[in-house]
Amino acid sequence: MSTSRANAPYHHGNLRNALLDAALVILEREGEAGLGLRDLARAVGVSPAAPYRHFDSRAALLEALAVTGFQRFTRAMDEVAASGPADLASAMGKTYVLFALQNRALFRLMFSPQLRRDHRPGLRMASDAAFATLRHVIGGDLKEGRVAALAAWARVHGLAVLLLDGQIALQAGEDIEALVTAIVENRPVAP
């Protein structure tokens, strides 16, 4: 009886996280269309069946990626809030847009109409947590606070999408971060 490593089963320390990490790289490099469970298994170096232990379908993988995105986004917003900026709402708005620009494919996946939140409780909880962070900053009573938070969200989300789609062109020498700050704070850009 042989006890060589060649006969030992393959073990991965934390396969789910390794799959998600690799999927994020593929997502940013190739877009959502480049994500398949078999290709992901190959990228991580596991059998084609291994990813199915953690994601029963491609849709489940996409949902997990979107949840990861919302969790990262919420952490970024919490960090901004904890830093105590003078204008918290503007600082969070800037963080929102910059997160979108730095995580283009992930951001698009997070808000993809393909991932219907009403059928995915994990995704609903993650997106609700992100919105709750914004709502907490805006404040107000239940109805007014919700409307104010939705208005703030629409403004920064619209700006993010316009920038992602190339609908707002940068002028020569223009700094994207300065432009985003000026728009979010509703002030002219310093020359």
Rank of each mutant, 00 (worst) to 15 (best):
V189C: 14
D118C: 15
I138E: 04
A129D: 09
F111N: 03
L170G: 14
V147F: 07
A130N: 06
L170W: 13
I138R: 05
T181P: 05
A160P: 00
D175Y: 10
L170A: 15
V137W: 11
D175G: 09
G145N: 02
P188H: 03
H136D: 03
A172E: 12
L109T: 00
I168M: 08
H119Q: 12
E185G: 09
A172W: 04
N186S: 12
A148I: 07
V147K: 04
A160Y: 00
Q114Y: 06
R120L: 08
H157P: 00
K143M: 06
T181C: 09
I138F: 08
A148G: 13
T133S: 08
G140S: 06
D141C: 02
I176G: 06
L142T: 10
Q171L: 15
G139E: 01
L164W: 02
W153L: 12
G166H: 15
D118V: 13
R146L: 07
W153G: 01
G158P: 01
M110S: 05
A132Q: 12
R124F: 03
V137G: 02
L134E: 01
F131I: 00
H136M: 08
F107T: 03
L164M: 10
L109F: 01
L159V: 06
E177R: 09
L159P: 00
A182Y: 06
L109Q: 01
A169C: 09
H136T: 02
R187E: 10
L115C: 14
L164G: 01
A182E: 04
L142Y: 02
P188G: 06
F111A: 03
D141M: 02
G145F: 02
L142Q: 08
G166D: 13
R155N: 11
T181V: 07
V161N: 10
G173F: 12
P113W: 12
W153F: 13
L164H: 01
A149S: 10
R135Q: 06
D141A: 01
K143V: 12
L163Y: 00
F107Y: 11
G173M: 13
L142D: 04
